[in-house]
């Protein structure tokens, strides 16, 4: 089934393509270290060169995430963060930034408990463009993927090194917005991707879909962004950002004057890697 609609994600990838460069996708956890700072970080990400924001929805049991994102999700929950606060944050962000695409990323249970229809209605209203739900593989598309498309929200699927050619069409079937290629088999932020393998995998995916392909899991340095930007349409950074947030906090896990800057510094750095890749092309 195909439903035709356009989101800010499609527009942003088109813009980046016109400028001949890869998009920079930045992940942070909503409410870490607190809602106010989190919102400042979102604006900071855009100002320092991020094209798309992935906002993590905190969950007590993030099974596919490494220590950095686990810790950040628990910090947010310790401050009493809820799903409604995540959606309210996005509403607030949209008041001054109507253009930057926002993708919510997380696990199914908090959405299931919120109620799928209520969640999709509120998410669309808040200005959410896409969803990445780690524990909803294509076999479960009726749960959230198809209903999300009906609300004109992109359901972005992860493809991994274990997704073979036989399985790839299943993974791509109801995917829209972009395809997120997880460059290592493992949890977030733990291993470095091998660029030759990534190149091959991205080509395999692109042979089967016109959608842009973004690559993440393990991206930390400018050099990696430079390399990935030459083989993919997008570079995703996550654990490095939430790790920097953690480093910047005081003893009580409260934000300091360093917090926002520690994140924007990484983003400017990665963005310059992407720009250099564009000039190199």
């Amino acid at each position: 089934m195909t439903i035709s609609f356009t989101t800010r994600i499609d527009e942003r990838f088109t813009e980046c393509k016109t400028s001949n460069r890869a998009a920079l996708v930045a992940f942070i956890t909503a409410g870490d270290p607190d809602v106010e700072t989190s919102l400042q970080i979102m604006h900071g990400l855009v100002a320092s060169g991020a094209d798309i924001i992935e906002l993590g929805m905190p969950f007590t049991d993030p099974m596919a995430d490494g220590p950095a994102i686990q810790a950040s999700t628990l910090r947010a929950l310790a401050k009493g963060h809820t799903m409604k606060m995540t959606l309210d944050m996005v509403c607030e962000f949209r008041k001054t930034d109507p253009k930057t695409p926002i993708v919510l990323m997380g696990y199914y249970n908090p959405i299931f408990i919120y109620g799928v229809e209520a969640f999709l209605t509120d998410a669309k209203k808040a200005g959410i463009d896409g969803l990445i739900i780690v524990d909803l593989p294509p076999e479960t598309d009726d749960e959230l993927c198809i209903p999300a498309m009906n609300h004109e929200i992109n359901f972005i699927r992860l493809a991994t090194p274990t997704t073979d050619e036989k399985r790839l069409p299943t993974v791509l079937q109801n995917t829209s917005g972009f395809v997120y290629y997880v460059s290592v088999a493992g949890i977030t932020g733990t291993k470095k991707p091998d660029i030759t393998k990534v190149d091959q995998a991205v080509q395999n995916i692109k042979a089967q879909t016109p959608l842009p392909v973004a690559v993440g899991f393990g991206v930390r340095e400018k050099q990696q962004a430079f390399e990935i930007a030459q083989v993919a349409d997008g570079v995703v950074v996550g654990s490095a950002l939430v790790g920097a947030i953690e480093q910047s906090l005081d003893k009580n896990n409260a934000a300091t004057e360093k917090t926002v800057a520690s994140v924007t510094k990484i983003i400017s750095d990665l963005r310059s890697g992407i720009e250099e890749a564009a000039q190199n092309a």
Partner: peptide
């Protein structure tokens, strides 16, 4: 029941 797992585990 069902199979609510990350894509990496699905083929496995």
């Amino acid at each position: 029941g069902g199979r609510f797992v990350a894509e990496t585990l699905m083929p496995l």
